[in-house]
Design a protein around this nucleic acid. Structure first.
Length: 572
DNA sequence: GCCGTTTTCGGCCCGACTGTTTTCAGTCG
């Protein structure tokens, strides 16, 4: 974990621990700070270059929190955090992960029943001890037990790829109701965040009861968490909650704005509304009790002096300022990719033939595709040794001729970067290829210095066109490798090498924050699916979403170029 | 604890639903 992530986690936990004890306002400051640190550049670097003052330039970080960051950088711990955790065992904080348990309940369970962990809480609930507490009853005791079960089953937030599919299914089933005249996803799903905590759906309907009855009895509903006439909430069998809101047409835009979020974006927008003498909620923008706007998002933002911002960048990370000043980025459109440049076939660990992958690319409407099977050292993935590589190139060249006029087929490779930064094909083989993606597949735990040197060396190889999945992370499963991105960005730019935005839902690598930093530095990107079968090519949507979340424009992504221009680009 | 077209003190987003309540606190998004 990077220092930023470590500090963010500590601040976030401190916010919870303070809130448990009923401390006013501080928790919000710590929560804001956690987010700010997470989104900021490397704090170690900021501190080294600009000292405490530079840290205080991070919005949300004042003198006191800057000192805590410095304390952590220097001594590896924060005294005040240690004191807080001494008072409250970490198990008490863990209880807050149970659905329906927040800071106040966790605190009371600990204070009044001396419960220190989720396991102890489960025992106490089963023994019927919770219902004896004031404000608790048999129902809440049962809900806590169910919440513990759900927590045990769940593996963290759901991947966008899966949640997107679930969202489509729910919307598809609800659309069958003639009582629903409009339906849209909201929340993190609409923002296309890499992981999704719950699926939000908004509808316009004249018959809320029918909608709610249908929604709460959909085939994959495990249990109903709440059911009202304007809002209902269910837990899906897949372990993720889904929420629905029923609205009137005059409020739909307001609700869409409100429920798309994110929370920080909304708070900032509502503060602007207040300053201008309005009130903004999910029903509209009001002056006193008079509705000023609400039908569409555009009209609400317009009254506030803002241009509508694409949902993917509504994170309160600079988009509101850009919206105010008319400097919003022109984000890369979802239909702008002209070719997939990272694909696998049966020759290594893919499941389709080379020709099937080419046909799939044609169906995607692409101008070009690169076939990039694994290299020698990837034994588990049946990586191609030099002899098979040349045979495969031969096959690709034949198919290139066969499909000439329909699509341009590039002979490529995903060549592994060895621990010392060398590549596992010699240059004389790389020379035979049209397109080379270089990726790290081993020795993930190298130090930041070693890993950075390793990747930079690969970038400097004259045959390398792109670096595949540059952080190697697998969401919810594997930490990214430790890399100094400022150096990788500089090397990539200097050597005209693109950094991949890998669209595979488990990867989504680079992350949105890396992309944003790279875009600012003028780095070029390539959005690929890393398809291991023909269906995976559809993942491109998630890669484009990730690029959009990183404020990337068409010009920042090389495989938006039509073939003639792309050909010139790779023959640089 | 942070922040400033409300500027160094006094604010800090807003509402639905639930459970256990006789009017509301807690949780969630």
């Amino acid at each position: 974990m990077s220092k930023n992530a470590e500090i963010a986690e500590i601040f976030s936990e401190m916010a919870d621990l303070l809130e448990m004890q009923g401390v006013q306002w501080k928790p919000r400051a710590y929560q804001n700070a956690a987010r700010a640190v997470e989104a900021a550049e490397d704090v170690e670097k900021i501190f080294k270059e600009g000292g405490k003052k530079a840290l205080m330039d991070i919005p949300g970080i004042g003198e006191s929190l800057a000192e805590k960051i410095i304390e952590y950088l220097k001594r590896g711990k924060i005294k005040e955090y240690d004191q807080l955790t001494k008072k409250l065992p970490s198990g008490v904080h863990d209880m807050m992960h149970i659905m329906g348990v927040g800071p106040k309940k966790a605190w009371r369970l600990h204070k009044e029943l001396k419960i220190k962990s989720i396991a102890q809480l489960e025992q106490a609930a089963k023994a019927g001890k919770l219902r004896k507490l004031a404000g608790f009853g048999a129902k809440s005791e049962g809900d806590i037990l169910k919440g513990i079960e759900t927590l045990k089953k769940g593996q963290g937030r759901m991947l966008l790829g899966r949640a997107w599919q679930l969202g489509q299914e729910i919307i598809g089933q609800l659309k069958k109701l003639k009582e629903i005249t409009k339906i849209e996803p909201a929340g993190s799903l609409r923002r296309m965040k890499e992981t999704i905590g719950d699926i939000d759906v908004l509808v316009i309907s004249t018959n809320p009861k029918k909608v709610m009855d249908t929604f709460t009895t959909l085939p994959n509903v495990e249990r109903v968490l709440a059911k009202g006439m304007t809002k209902s909430s269910v837990l899906l069998r897949e372990g993720i909650p889904a929420d629905i809101r029923v609205l009137e047409p005059k409020s739909f835009g307001a609700a869409l704005q409100y429920f798309t979020g994110n929370k920080e974006h909304n708070i900032a927008v509502r503060q602007i509304a207040i300053k201008k003498g309005y009130k903004l909620n999910e029903y509209g923008l009001f002056k006193g009790s008079r509705l000023i706007a609400g039908k569409t998002e555009e009209e609400i933002y317009k009254v506030l002096g803002l241009r509508v911002m694409p949902p993917e960048i509504r994170e309160n990370l600079g988009e509101i300022q850009a919206s105010k000043t008319g400097t919003l980025p022109d984000l890369i459109p979802y239909d702008s990719i002209r070719g997939d440049l990272h694909t696998h076939t049966k020759w290594s660990d893919g499941t389709n033939t080379t020709e099937e992958m080419i046909q799939a690319a044609i169906r995607m409407g692409y101008d070009y595709i690169a076939i990039t099977d694994h290299s020698t050292s990837e034994h588990v993935a049946r990586g191609l040794d030099e002899k098979r590589l040349l045979k495969h190139v031969e096959e690709i060249r034949k198919l290139k001729k066969k499909y000439a006029g329909k699509i341009v087929v590039l002979a490529g490779s995903e060549v592994s970067i060895m621990a010392d930064g060398s590549l596992d094909y010699a240059d004389k083989y790389l020379k035979e290829l049209d397109w080379v993606v270089a990726s790290v597949h081993s020795r993930f735990k190298q130090s930041s210095a070693e890993m950075t040197k390793r990747i930079v060396k690969a970038i400097e190889n004259p045959y390398v066109c792109a670096i595949g999945h540059p952080t190697g992370r697998l969401i919810n499963a594997r930490e990214p490798y430790d890399v100094a991105f400022d150096r990788v960005f500089a090397a990539a730019k200097a050597n005209n090498v693109a950094l991949e935005i890998n669209a595979y839902p488990e990867r989504l690598d680079l992350k949105d924050t890396h992309i944003k930093a790279g875009v600012e530095k003028g780095v070029k990107f390539v959005i690929d699916t890393d398809a291991h079968n023909e269906n995976h090519m559809k993942f491109i949507t998630f890669g484009i979403a990730q690029a959009r979340r990183g404020w990337a424009e068409t010009k920042d992504v090389i495989n938006t170029l039509p073939w003639k221009k792309f050909e010139k680009y790779i023959r640089r």
